Computed example of a mutant assay.
Amino acid sequence: MRLLFALPGFHKYERGAEIALLSVAAELARTGDDVTVIGSGQARPDDPYKFIHASSIRRENFEKFPFIPLFRSETVYEEATFAANLALRYQPSDFDAVLTCSFPFTNMVLRRPVLGGKKPLNLFITQNGEWPAVSNDAEYRFFSCDGLVCTNPDYYETNKDRWNCALIPNGISIDRFKLGAGDRAALGFPADRQVILMVSALIPTKRVLDGIRAVAPMGDAHLVVAGDGPMREEVKALAAELLPGRFTQLTVTPDQMPTLYQSADVFLHMSLLESFGNVFPEAMACGLPIVGHDTQRLRWIVGDEEFLVDTQNTPSVTKALTDALAAKQAAPVKVSERATNFAWQNIARQYREFLTELMSDQS
Rank of each mutant, 00 (worst) to 15 (best):
P217S: 12
Q256I: 04
A226S: 15
L3M: 00
Q194Y: 11
P332H: 11
F307P: 04
L70F: 10
T295Q: 11
T295L: 15
P92I: 12
G147F: 05
E241I: 02
E241R: 00
I125W: 11
S93I: 12
D34K: 01
T151E: 01
R44M: 03
A84M: 10
P289R: 13
V199H: 09
K319L: 12
T36I: 01
M257D: 04
A185S: 15
V98A: 06
I301W: 03
G211K: 08
L355N: 08
S55I: 01
A166L: 08
R184N: 04
M270A: 14
M270G: 05
E79M: 10
E14G: 05
C150E: 04
P217E: 08
T314W: 06
E282D: 09
I174Q: 05
G9R: 00
T248A: 11
E60C: 09
D34L: 00
R352N: 15
L355G: 08
V235K: 02
T81Q: 03
V37W: 04
A240C: 13
N164C: 13
L70T: 12
G39V: 03
L88W: 09
V215Y: 04
V252E: 11
A84D: 09
N164P: 10
L209M: 04
I168T: 02
P48L: 02
N152D: 09
D183A: 10
F124G: 08
L115I: 15
Q345K: 03
A285D: 07
F143D: 02
A320K: 01
Q362A: 06
V37E: 00
R58N: 11
V317W: 00
H222C: 13
T158F: 06
L123Q: 10
L88P: 04
Y90K: 04
T205E: 05
F124E: 04
I52P: 02
S336H: 06
T248G: 05
G227S: 05
H269S: 02
E234R: 07
G9V: 01
R349E: 07
F71I: 02
D46H: 13
L202E: 02
S363N: 14
S200R: 01
P244D: 00
T251R: 08
D210Q: 03
L3K: 05
V291K: 07
L3I: 08
A84F: 13
K64N: 13
S73D: 02
G287I: 11
L268Q: 01
D96H: 11
H11W: 06
G39A: 00
A324N: 09
D255G: 07
F5I: 04
A84I: 09
C101T: 01
R213K: 04
F267Q: 05
M218Q: 12
D96A: 14
A285R: 12
L223M: 01
D228F: 14
A331F: 15
A339S: 08
T251L: 14
G182M: 05
P48T: 05
Q345A: 14
L179N: 04
L179A: 03
P204N: 07
F124Q: 05
R352W: 10
S173T: 09
